[in-house]
Simulated scan of single mutants.
Amino acid sequence: MMNPGLPLLPWIVCVAFTFCAYFPGHVAGIRKDISLSAPIMCRSTVQGRHLISDDNGYICSALSINPWSQCCPRTGSRYSCQGCKLDLQCCNSYEYCVSCCLDPSRTKEADVLKLKVAKPVTSGTYRNIFDFCMGRCRHSSASVVHENAYASDFHHCFLVQQNSSGSVESDSGPRLPGINISIGRRGESCSSVCRAKGQSCVPSRLSALNKCEM
Rank of each mutant, 00 (worst) to 15 (best):
S99D: 09
V145C: 04
F130A: 10
A118R: 15
F130I: 06
Y126H: 05
S141K: 09
R136L: 02
T107A: 09
D103S: 09
K119R: 13
T122M: 13
K108C: 15
V121P: 15
N128P: 07
D111F: 04
E109R: 03
F130K: 03
C101D: 04
S140T: 15
G124A: 10
N128R: 04
C101S: 03
P120N: 05
C133T: 08
K116N: 12
A118D: 14
R106V: 08
A118G: 14
K114Y: 10
R138T: 09
S105F: 05
H146M: 07
I129A: 02
P120R: 13
P104F: 02
R106Y: 03
V121T: 14
L102Q: 01
A142C: 10
T107C: 06
T125C: 14
C137E: 00
E109A: 11
G135L: 05
T122E: 13
D131Y: 01
R127K: 10
S140I: 11
R136H: 11
M134S: 06
C133M: 03
M134V: 10
K116S: 08
S123Q: 11
H146E: 06
A110K: 15
T107G: 07
V145S: 03
P104L: 05
K108M: 11
L115W: 06
C133E: 01
E109T: 09
A142H: 04
P120I: 13
S123W: 06
T107R: 01
D111M: 09
V145Q: 02
R127P: 06
K114A: 15
S143E: 05
D131C: 07
I129N: 00
R138P: 00
V145T: 04
C133S: 04
V144Y: 00
G135K: 00
N128M: 03
V145I: 05
C137L: 00
D103Q: 12
G135M: 05
R106H: 11
R127N: 07
R138H: 01
F130D: 00
V117A: 08
A110N: 15
S140W: 02
